[in-house]
């Protein structure tokens, strides 16, 4: 059964448009030439979010595990494609990104459900998966790009190590550590300052929806821990899968042929 758009909050949404109108006026006044883009973006955001609202409503009502898994697969596919494009230059970037994000997200969501932190219902899993997969996508593209840059920039040292009898993994190890560090740093830093500078999205949403701040922080703590876990799992999988693409089975740098 479709729910319809709750019309009682529509006036608030339309009133918020006043901010967009002001932004467009400022753009015209300062000749920024952005007013067309501002208006297009606002209309697109309205249509996209209303559409996703209806879609989520439908899925939440159906609450079918197969439909949930299908949605997760589509989200992971889009994340893999996006991270693969950002990591271009690393061999087989698309496949590596898809595998690493799938691994990181599946392990994180699997643990969250099996430990009883969240239920496998559409209402709980889909928003949580959105955060986990989005975060994994960012970590994956950061780590993949860094591994690519490190291996290319350190190729003399890596070849020197190979010539001394090191395996590909041993030769690349010091630089892989740097890459994992760079992928994990943003989420670790954000965990350090969470709540001090801005209230994170999940918490803000709950408070606006009427939950008590203490309920909201509990969920936010779970979200932070979950994102740290997802970053570590995805980062490790990305490193493991990416660096191997740079070496042959005979520990030679560069895939020949």
């Amino acid at each position: 059964m479709f729910n319809t758009l709750p019309l009682d909050s529509l006036p608030r949404v339309l009133t918020a448009l006043a901010l967009v109108a002001l932004a467009a006026i400022i753009s015209r006044w300062q000749t920024l030439d952005l007013e067309k883009q501002i208006l297009t973006a606002s209309v697109r955001a309205f249509i996209q979010l209303i559409a996703i609202g209806y879609a989520l409503n439908f899925i939440f009502d159906a609450d079918n595990p197969a439909a949930i898994l299908l949605i997760l697969a589509v989200m992971t596919g889009i994340a893999g494609y996006t991270a693969g494009k950002r990591g271009r230059g690393a061999p087989h970037a698309g496949r590596v990104a898809l595998a690493a994000i799938s691994f990181g997200a599946a392990l994180t969501l699997g643990l969250l459900v099996s430990l009883g932190i969240f239920n496998f219902t559409a209402q709980q899993i889909i928003p949580i998966a959105g955060m986990v997969i989005g975060n994994s996508m960012n970590v994956c593209s950061l780590v993949m790009g860094r591994v690519r840059d490190e291996v290319n920039g350190r190729s003399p040292q890596i070849e020197a190590a190979l010539a001394l009898g090191a395996t590909g993994r041993q030769a690349a190890h010091p630089y892989l550590r740097t890459a994992l560090h760079s992928g994990m740093t943003p989420i670790v830093d954000s965990a350090k300052t969470v709540g001090l500078i801005q209230l994170p999205g999940a918490m803000t949403g709950m408070i606006l929806a009427g939950a008590s701040p203490l309920e909201a922080v509990q969920l936010q703590i779970i979200v932070m821990y979950m994102l740290i876990g997802a970053a570590a799992f995805t980062g490790l999988a990305t490193i493991w899968l990416t660096f191997r693409q740079f070496f042959t089975a005979n520990h030679q740098l560069g895939i020949e042929g």
Binding site: P156, Q157, E159, A160, A161, A163, P174
Partner: peptide, 8 residues
């Protein structure tokens, strides 16, 4: 090699 490529 021509470049000593020493490790840190």
């Amino acid at each position: 090699f021509q470049s000593p490529a020493l490790f840190p």
